[in-house]
């Protein structure tokens, strides 16, 4: 197991390095005038020039990249004299437009995005897998058909469309839910849930449909395996056979595709925040794109990449803990 872990972490580090390089190239190399972009709109020529010097944008690419990477781990200092700003570890850059380190901006908004993402993920996993399992067990009955039909429809509904429809139905027409908003769960759990439920459903719907279909297929497959007959021949109750033996096997492929969906989860969070006007990292990101605040854009992109890679590592570990054949290979 230790060897497995080590190899995976090493792979993750390599991917992270590639991610850093790609992000760096996109944001510091591509733009014609990175200094001006970093400084943002409404910037004076003098500031642009000083940024140019401070960030070492006149140095060779390798040196710039090195500074950029090391800055993440050790923090950096931008500017001199009265313009000095300290950007502590981890330094993902400094937003001249908002006068704050990017990491501060991100941390402020992290709870919102995390709430959206985690809540939706739990909803789609619990919901999708359960529904798929039920459909598999009641194969070819009306329950199964309803689930299949609903999944097919759900698959074709993009997040923003679902969000608008929900807003219209639940908030405007029926008035059962308030306008989605973020209240910290520690402040008011009730408001937290009623405020978040629509974003969660909107984001979870498509994934729930995918996972329902997938779980159904995998559980049907698993229930056809020989060890299911063995379990029954041991005298186990049917429920234990289904859950402990069947579902257990069906879960592992579901975990595999989970890894691929984290990236989508973040993208979905961006959209959901836009639709509902929630002050999360996604909204920060889009606003930065609009204002051409390159450090923020870069920081958010990096964060997204980090998160996906880390989440994939965790998924790999969970998979290995479930299927012993993988870790002992």
């Amino acid at each position: 197991m230790a060897g497995f872990l080590l190899r995976r972490i090493l792979g993750m580090l390599i991917v992270l390095l590639c991610l850093l390089a790609v992000t760096f190239i996109i944001f510091y190399v591509f733009p014609a005038n990175p200094a001006r972009d970093i400084c943002g709109k409404g910037c004076t020529a003098a500031t642009v020039a000083s940024i140019d010097r401070q960030l070492g944008l006149n140095k060779p690419l390798w040196a710039q990249f090195g500074q950029y990477v090391s800055g993440i781990f050790t923090g950096r200092r931008f500017g001199q004299g009265s313009h000095l700003v300290a950007c502590n570890f981890p330094c993902f850059g400094y937003s001249y437009q908002d006068n704050l380190p990017v990491s501060t901006l991100i941390l402020q908004r992290l709870p919102v995005t995390a709430s959206i993402a985690v809540g939706a993920a739990i909803l789609w996993l619990a919901g999708g897998v359960t529904i798929g399992a039920v459909a598999a067990l009641k194969k070819n009955t009306w329950v199964d058909r309803v689930v299949t039909a609903t999944s097919l429809v759900g698959l074709a509904l993009p997040v923003f469309l679902v969000a608008i429809v929900l807003l219209f139905l639940l908030t405007a027409k029926l008035g059962v839910l308030p306008d989605p908003s973020y209240t910290s769960i520690f402040v008011n759990p009730g408001a937290f849930f009623t405020g978040m439920i629509q974003p969660w459903i909107a984001l979870a719907m498509v994934y729930a449909a995918v996972y329902a279909r997938f779980t159904r297929a995998k559980l049907i497959e698993a229930m056809g395996e020989q060890y299911i007959t063995t379990a029954r021949a041991k005298g186990l109750r049917e429920r234990r056979t289904v859950v402990h033996h069947g579902l257990r096997s069906a879960i592992t492929p579901v975990i595999t595709i989970l890894g691929m969906d984290f990236g989508g989860l973040l993208g979905g969070a961006v959209i959901v925040e836009t639709v509902y006007g929630l002050p999360g990292i996604g909204q920060l990101f889009l606003q930065a794109v609009d204002k051409v605040d390159i450090p923020v854009v870069t920081g958010c992109t990096l964060l997204a990449g980090f998160f996906v890679i880390a989440a994939n590592l965790i998924v790999d570990l969970v998979y290995a803990s479930l299927d012993p054949r993988v870790r002992l290979a």
Partner: peptide, 14 residues
């Protein structure tokens, strides 16, 4: 009790 032909598929791999 009952035993089956292919023990690799008849025992749960996990």
């Amino acid at each position: 009790g009952m035993i089956f032909q292919d023990p690799l598929s008849a025992l749960h791999p996990h």
